[in-house]
């Protein structure tokens, strides 16, 4: 169990000239529910597809559950993947989907899948094409879970769902986490959802990982500092500036704290997850923020 859920070293993926993912090195321990956030085109889907073994890296390496993704049938069976558009066959009945899944997977929990569909009030005779968005998402998740995967990858699973369907989908996902040992990585734009269900965060911006870690630790280790703007006065010691905003008088910083703020004249506030994510996403703010810290170096 010591191997990581996902471990990458210098991972990169290039589509022709453009790098969709570049120089990613991180390690996600097992047993977490990981939220993957970032602007559109930041590389979230690329990262998930690499982890699922649907893409091969252009640079560096990725290990999933200690092995190369999609190396063999046994590795594939350990990983479940729910792609963005809930890949289902419209003309095929729910029963057909379950039989297909059973046929393709050595381990298949048909009983649990049927129980779940009954709970959702879905008749197995219905065709997938006739289902609502929420039902399609639930079916796609049910199929992925019936594989009994050790790692479940979900690409924007709730993006197209209404609030009620979203809540039910995430509720089902969390009941799975409560029931057995499974690691989950899901990408989402909705920080409020991530805040509820995830305990680990990865922020991807411009094809690179900006920050990764346990959410509780990230929230405890970041602060908002508000102080007067004074020429030549840098950010306090022990604080790494992530984002900075200035008016002619005031400075507002979002910092990563490696120790307490000892200087006076700063008001210190805790930060919520949404502001933390936004601080890492705002690239302009980050570059501007480099200035004061470098000036501060003696």
């Amino acid at each position: 169990m010591s191997e990581a859920a996902i471990e990458t070293v210098g991972l990169g993926k290039r589509y022709q000239r453009r790098w969709a993912l570049e120089d990613c090195t991180f390690r996600i321990p097992r047993g977490h529910v990981v939220g993957l956030v970032g602007p559109n085109g930041a590389g979230k889907s690329t990262l998930l597809n690499l982890a699922a073994g649907l893409l091969a890296p252009s640079a560096g390496s990725i290990k999933v559950l200690g092995e190369q993704p999609a190396r063999d049938a046994a590795q594939l069976a350990r990983v479940g993947f729910v792609p963005q558009d809930a890949a289902l066959y419209g003309w095929l009945s729910i029963e057909g989907h379950l039989r297909l899944g059973e046929h393709c997977n050595p381990q298949w929990d048909a009983k649990a899948a049927h129980a779940r569909l009954a709970e959702l009030g879905l008749s197995t005779r219905q065709r997938a094409g006739k289902l609502s968005g929420g039902q399609r998402a639930q079916l796609s998740l049910t199929i992925a879970l019936a594989k009994c995967p050790e790692l479940l990858l979900l690409d924007e699973p709730v993006a197209s769902l209404d609030p009620l369907a979203r809540r039910e989908f995430l509720g089902l996902l969390m009941s799975t986490v409560a029931g057995r040992d499974v690691s989950i990585v899901l990408s989402s734009h909705l920080v409020s959802d991530i805040e509820r269900v995830c305990d680990y965060l990865i922020v991807l911006v411009d094809s690179r990982v900006r920050v990764a870690g346990e959410i509780e630790e990230l929230l405890a280790g970041h602060h908002r500092l508000i102080g007067l703007r004074q020429p030549g006065v840098a950010a306090p010691a022990n604080q790494t500036v992530i984002a900075a905003r200035e008016t002619d008088r005031q400075r507002m910083l979002v910092v990563r704290s490696d120790g307490p703020v000892v200087e006076t004249g700063w008001e210190i506030e805790s930060i919520n997850l949404e502001d933390l994510v936004l601080a890492y996403m705002g690239e302009g703010a980050a570059r501007q923020a480099q200035l004061p810290t470098t000036q501060a170096a003696p």
Partner: peptide, 14 residues
């Protein structure tokens, strides 16, 4: 139970 709570309000079991 933990499972009941997380299913109902969709939060992390931890």
């Amino acid at each position: 139970t933990v499972r009941e709570v997380v299913t109902r309000i969709a939060i992390n079991p931890n």
